[in-house]
Design a protein around this nucleic acid. Structure first.
Length: 454
RNA sequence: GCCCCCUUCGUCUAGCCCGGUCAGGACACCUCGUUUUCACUGAGGUAACUGGGGUUCGAAUCCCCAAGGGGGCGCCA
């Protein structure tokens, strides 16, 4: 049994950012890798933006990505409450402690941490005003990812605002102490804040936890880190596009960490087994939706057929392409021939809808391709139709019909493929045509070819 | 302005700690193949050590500087 205790401490804002998801994931992976505890703590001190619906977004997203927690707002635990808004008395008591120790003082109605060092008054270019600087000793951080980092705070900072509410730095450290957090795994944007946190630990006389500052996720193009407004930045986008949560999670793992064995696509228990903080990268990574899409596609095709059906069925039902006549067996049959070709679930309804409905969409670009370079789709369909009309409806016979048509008209059998595919599906691509025709059945195939040339 | 972190193909990266590799892989892209003008698949290809100084017989690898990128500097979190 490991003594590792890590936490993810999101602020409920109504959205779940991909960067937050990755931070949560790394904490979760570390807890699961070490056999420690993963704790969820809600930083809802900002009453303006707090609501239950917002909390639900976070919990649902974490669950969707397959993460679970050992202590948290919904399940409790020995170190609760897990909402910061319910820990006000604790923060006040801890402030009193610092006041007693002479480490905090009041000024302008707020409570400040007193740094140790020589003081002088200087004009600050950034704040555009006179401030009191303190020549404090640098705080030394032995970061698990970055190594030794030294940084000195140069002025006192606020612990409690004049309105009586504690600030982030204070509650964050107090909670980490009280919840016995052993490892803080967070974004590099907090690296500069760490000296403040270490000062607070020092003021309390408490040994700080280990820190691991992980690289940030940058915009695909353009400057800066991913922000909520960037395409692909919110987890809900992937839920809406029917991405496989395991694929999203897999990709997120690759942003800032590389599996030791070099394999990029791997099951979560394998990732848990291999995950090490020392292997986390030091440099930021640019988000690449194409790569995530690729991982999603690979994962999708590798799914056991029954699982693929289970995932696809509700999506097709929701898109209303399945009517009551479609049996589970029939659905499984159709899905089995397209799974090896499928790229995403986002457009699955259009991809397989023609099997179940006669009013399928027709891809205009695909149709345009048929007549390019002197193509005569109507003639080809007319020619192949003759050979398909009276055959036994099995794969071998259908294939033989294409060969016969090719021989008769001195063409490659494949010359008939694209026109036939478009006639029966309205698409330019898809699963292997012979299999499609076989699954579609004789009646529908012939009827659609007839109507194409009519 | 001050402080901190980072720097290998277009992108994600391996290699760096313990100097000697044709600097490897993946995505994307290009070419060719496959009974589809393919949301499958196979083969091949283009493409990188930010720059400058050291140290060394030898540097992507060690040291310094510069440049570039990122982050922070609130009574936000």
């Amino acid at each position: 049994m490991s003594s590792v205790r890590v936490r993810f401490a999101p602020s409920p804002t109504g959205f779940f950012h991909i960067g937050s998801a990755r931070t949560a994931l790394f904490n979760w992976l570390y807890a699961r890798h070490t056999g420690g505890k993963f704790i969820l703590r809600i930083e809802d001190t900002d009453k303006e933006r707090n609501s239950e619906a917002y909390l639900k977004v976070i919990l649902d997203s974490l669950r969707w990505l397959g993460m679970d927690w050992d202590e948290g707002p919904d399940i409790g635990g020995n170190y609760g409450p897990y909402f910061q808004s319910q820990r006000t008395e604790l923060y006040k008591a801890k402030l009193q402690e610092l006041i007693q120790l002479g480490k905090a003082y009041e000024k302008d109605g707020a409570w400040w941490l007193r740094l140790e060092g020589k003081r002088s008054t200087v004009f600050d270019d950034h704040l555009k005003k006179e401030i009191e600087k303190v020549d404090a000793a640098p705080m030394v951080l032995d970061d698990l990812v970055r190594g030794r980092v030294e940084r000195a705070e140069d002025r006192d900072f606020v612990l409690f605002r004049s309105n009586g509410e504690p600030v982030f730095h204070f509650v964050n450290v107090v909670d980490d102490i009280e919840m016995k957090i052993t490892h803080v795994i967070r974004g590099e944007d907090h690296l500069s804040n760490t000296s403040k946190h270490l000062e607070i630990f020092k003021a309390f006389g408490v040994k700080p936890p280990e820190y691991a500052h992980i690289p940030l996720i940058l915009k695909t193009d353009g400057p800066g880190k991913m922000s909520k407004r960037d395409r692909g930045a919110l987890i809900e986008e992937y839920q809406n596009k029917n991405y496989l949560p395991s694929a999203v999670r897999n990709y997120l793992c690759l942003l800032g960490w590389t599996p030791a064995d070099g394999k990029e696509i791997l099951p979560i228990d394998e990732i848990i087994k291999q995950f090490e903080l020392k292997a986390i990268h030091q440099s930021n990574a640019r988000f690449d939706e194409k790569k995530m899409s690729h991982i999603n596609a690979q994962t999708l095709r590798a799914l056991p057929a029954s699982e693929f059906v289970a995932i696809a069925k509700p999506i097709l039902q929701h898109a209303q392409v399945l009517n009551d006549n479609v049996s589970d067996a029939r659905l499984a049959e159709v899905l089995s021939i397209i799974q090896e070709k499928v790229n995403s679930l986002e457009h699955l309804p259009e991809f397989v809808g023609f099997f179940f409905n006669n009013d399928f969409k027709k891809d205009e670009a695909a149709f345009a391709n048929l007549t390019k370079k002197g193509g005569e789709p109507t003639a080809r369909v007319r020619e192949i139709l003759v050979h398909l009309q009276s055959i036994e409806w099995n794969v071998a016979a259908i294939e033989a019909a294409f060969n016969a048509a090719g021989t008769e008209h001195n063409r490659k059998p494949t010359d008939f493929f694209a026109p036939v595919r478009f006639a029966v599906s309205g698409q330019g691509g898809g699963a292997h045509l012979i299999g499609v025709l076989h699954a579609l059945g004789r009646d529908l195939t012939l009827a659609r070819l007839q109507s194409f040339i009519a």
